[in-house]
Design a protein around this nucleic acid. Structure first.
Lengths: 344, 344
DNA sequence: GACAGAGGTGCAACCGCTTGCATTAATTGT
DNA sequence: ACAATTAATGCAAGCGGTTGCACCTCTGTC
């Protein structure tokens, strides 16, 4: 049914090995022969079978991309960028969704291992030991997690959380709540660590609420807790939770930002469009997707490549944060307020 | 490096064919042998190489999924559902993003053809003839397009557009604008056809503006045109455009829905969260993703399976539509107004 | 006791392609 | 004029599996 290398060989009167070389080592075949073969291939619509080639070369030209939840708006830009970058290098992408389930992460990596050149694991929920073990079975690049010896692309959320909390403390907030993310999230731990330290430095109290599912509902359901804790400002694990929280706060009769200021993290498209527009920490997700693919393709075989790429984050101040009850810090924080318009 | 069927055969003292049968035809091997083989396989961590198997069986257990833009919020729920359904049947999914480029669609289908059991093309932009041709090279299921002889899953947007326009005309809107989608979109043509007929039946005038890119920016940039056309209500090709349009209208000083009513299509997550909350036509994207995968796997080989599955849409009335300048229709439309709360 | 049939396993070809090596023809050096 | 390169191609093994067929060993039957 499908046209194979033999069909092309027959049509052009050469041995299949010559056809093979025409595609994978053109300099070894006579220019005349080459063009004849190419003409026949073109006419027959021949495309090399990559799986067959992979069997012998060991290179599949496929990449696995594993995310916790495709429908979480944080991931699509990353997936899109990764796919685009991969195809630029003639690779295809398997996408798998683990539904925030660590066990499924392991299973999927193993299932994919044989048919990919490497796997990108985004925001993994499994533990480090398991990741290290898997990285011995298949080249791995991890996004949003730092593990010694495993190549990684991480967004500097610690810095982002620091900027966010400073933004709040300098504007007079003394009682800040932190909505943490899902259990097992490295990002969540980083945020917590950084936010705690920054709050202390700013003479503010930080109440941690969580862990929570990283969704709108996750934020919505803790609105009560936030009010009960008497916090005048909240930093949420991600924008989705922040938006859900705002929804919950408004429903409960609290005003945002007059009564409670809310800061998210990620700067997903949505945050520009809700009312009030969300103050948030912008993370370069598309850049991370591209970089992760590059990293995977770059150090192809030589393991031991243990590069860690850090990507800057920045605070985007919009309308969901306002002054708190405490005294303003005299020091002008100097952040640039980015208007929440439509991206170009 | 990787453990193969031969390693397992050696470890368990049987021929490779017995190992092979242990996995692909267990009833042919003695229960004792089978359990011994399975034990060895387990211990060695053996996983059959699917690419090698595919070479001889012709079944790859892979599916290609092609979308115009992963970052368009319409697609992620569909991708997620398709991936989940595919994995339920032990299949993996290649995702490709064509950036709304018809030529890229063709290229990607061809590139993927050899390593998948079938391809799902969502909202294709290429022409019917090309799709028919491709469907001769690889099993195809098309989402959101009807072509004779090609299995398809379509959302009944014509019905949705009718409901939307009736909603507007019965509330006194006599001058309605339609923001059409990208060139080549079957959905856009369907909407236009249905909206035109429904507007005429409701004694309203319909102005078509477009084609437009199916994005927020696409909606934003035509806000001026909408105002200039003097429309009191707008039906947009999708929610993203509707949201962009609202942004543009507000910026231009028009109130929504007091001055202009806006209806979107798709009911993406965003539409519940913008202010005003968007009235929109809900399309069952997740169901479509699942159904498309099922359809692809079901009629596996027997082509000629030309099933067309139609999925109902429904109007979700929220806060972006209000009464128009004309007289209300006495007839109660009887639509159920769904509050725009958070999904359960 | 010979034989048919069934159950269980091994053998070897093959899927589509790559690649080391052998073979042949053409070119170069001396 | 002849050996030594070099360029171009063919040959065949093999990547990791599957599968039709042959073979062997039991049972049960008459």
């Amino acid at each position: 049914m499908s046209v194979t290398i033999r069909d092309v060989a027959r049509a052009s009167g050469v041995h299949i090995s010559t056809v093979s070389r025409t595609f994978s080592a053109p300099h070894l075949v006579n220019p005349n022969t080459r063009s004849r073969v190419l003409a026949c291939a073109e006419e027959l619509g021949y495309r090399p079978n990559r799986a067959a080639r992979a069997l012998i070369t060991g290179r599949t030209y496929n990449i696995g991309l594993i995310v916790a939840d495709i429908a979480n708006p944080f991931f699509p830009p990353l997936i899109k960028a990764a796919e685009s970058q991969a195809r630029k290098h003639d690779h295809h992408i398997f996408v798998a969704d683990t539904n925030e389930d660590p066990a499924l992460e392991e299973e999927v990596v193993r299932a994919l291992a044989k048919q990919v050149d490497g796997v990108l694991i985004c925001s993994p929920r499994m533990n480090n030991a398991l990741i290290e073990q898997l990285s011995r079975e298949v080249p791995l690049v991890v996004v949003n997690r730092q593990i010694a010896g495993i190549p990684a692309v991480v967004m500097d959320v610690a810095q982002g959380a620091r900027l966010a909390v400073e933004h709040l403390t300098t504007r007079g907030h003394r009682n800040i709540a932190l909505l943490s993310g899902p259990r097992g999230s490295w990002t969540s731990r980083e945020i917590r660590r950084s936010a705690t330290a920054t709050a202390r430095a700013g003479h503010a109290e930080l109440t941690v609420i969580g862990p929570n599912p990283p969704t709108e509902v996750g934020g919505l359901t803790v609105a009560e807790d936030v009010l009960r804790a008497g916090a005048s400002a909240v930093l949420a694990y991600n924008d989705l939770m922040a938006i859900g929280l705002i929804e919950g706060l408004l429903t409960a009769g609290a005003r945002v930002p007059e009564d409670v200021s809310v800061v998210g993290i990620d700067d997903i498209m949505l945050s520009r469009l809700t009312r009030p527009k969300l103050t948030t920490v912008a993370t370069p997700t598309a850049a991370a997707g591209r970089a992760a693919v590059d990293m995977l393709l770059a150090h192809g075989d030589d393991r031991r490549s243990t590069a860690h790429l850090h990507l800057q984050t920045e605070l985007v101040i919009r309308d969901s944060t306002g002054p708190g009850p405490g005294p303003h810090s005299p020091a002008d924080p100097g952040y640039v307020s980015v208007p929440g318009g439509v991206a170009s």
